[in-house]
């Protein structure tokens, strides 16, 4: 069985995924992990919990953020439910004693913050998002999906299963202080006078390996190099919330959040098609 062939593979798997019932991370929650439950939980959290925690799960004056880049002590639905209802000993977290359904709604929302994007994919027009990715958004110039696209940026074939929706959104809207490892912009001038720009994949005192803007791989030993100039910022644009309309941005997120290699059997498609 062959799978994961070019773009249509992604599209078909997306369609199949949409038809699936609530996903494993909400399995303990009697209310499930549907969009409505999450929205209700979100509203309840902002209404009941922001005395200590920040609005929308941000850090608060007395309580921590609900989703951040760290290990969570309470991973499961049940653990979160118990923390809400019974409080956390030796901390400022009090027992809330909410109606059980409300507590489960809040659990569903917190888990959605921490879930990978494919678990809680963004709403929107997926086909339109794909069109923006390969067209107006120019994402495909630097990013590859299932073998199609440019090579300067990370492979996004499995993006939805690797990153949360929040992080995907941040990557498109918040500038990072430093380019990530393996994607540092670099321009090399050789002793022969050639100039090649791209991103450095690896470098040390005696050699440098890079992907050029032409998507070719270049290997240099230090004695071949006359000059190296580094770019200070990542090549990843962070103005997508401005360069795209609100609906276009939403559609792009809907497309990106569904890029996943999970459920391999479900994604068998015809070869060599593009969305």
């Amino acid at each position: 069985m062959t799978w994961c062939r070019r773009g249509l593979g992604i599209l078909v798997s997306v369609v199949l995924l949409l038809g699936l019932p609530s996903l494993a991370w909400g399995a303990e929650n009697p209310l499930g992990s549907g969009a409505e439950v999450i929205a209700e939980g979100h509203a309840l959290f902002n209404k009941l919990c922001t005395v200590c925690h920040g609005v929308d799960g941000a850090p608060g004056d007395r309580g921590p953020a609900m989703a951040a880049q760290r290990r969570y002590l309470r991973q499961t639905d049940t653990e979160l439910f118990q923390a809400i209802q019974e409080g956390i000993p030796d901390s400022e977290m009090p027992p809330m004693g909410l109606p059980e359904d409300d507590a489960w709604r809040i659990v569903a929302w917190i888990r959605s913050l921490r879930a990978k994007a494919i678990d809680v994919p963004a709403d929107g027009d997926i086909q339109q998002g794909s069109n923006i990715f390969w067209g107006k958004g120019e994402c495909g110039r630097c990013h590859v999906i299932s073998g199609r696209g440019g090579l300067l940026g990370p492979d996004l074939t499995n993006l939805g299963a690797q990153m949360s929706l929040n992080r995907i959104q941040e990557a498109m809207t918040v500038e990072k202080p430093h380019p990530p490892l393996g994607y540092r912009p670099v321009t090399v001038t050789t002793k022969g006078g050639r100039t090649i720009s791209g991103v450095s994949k690896n470098e040390h005192n005696f050699s440098l390996q890079m992907i050029g803007d032409d998507d070719r791989l270049y290997l240099f030993s230090s004695e071949e190099i006359d000059k190296i100039v580094y770019g200070e910022k990542s090549l990843m644009p962070t103005d997508y919330d401005r360069r795209l309309s609100e609906s276009e941005f939403r559609d792009l997120l809907a497309f990106l959040s569904r890029l996943s290699l999970r459920r391999r059997e479900s994604s068998s498609v015809e070869p060599n098609q593009t969305p």
């Binding site: 062959t2 590859v144 299932s146 073998g147 090579l151 992907i211 791989l217 070869p271």
Partner: peptide, 11 residues
């Protein structure tokens, strides 16, 4: 992909 290690297909 020989340049990046990105997976293109599997069977």
């Amino acid at each position: 992909d020989a340049r990046t290690g990105s997976m293109v297909w599997e069977s």
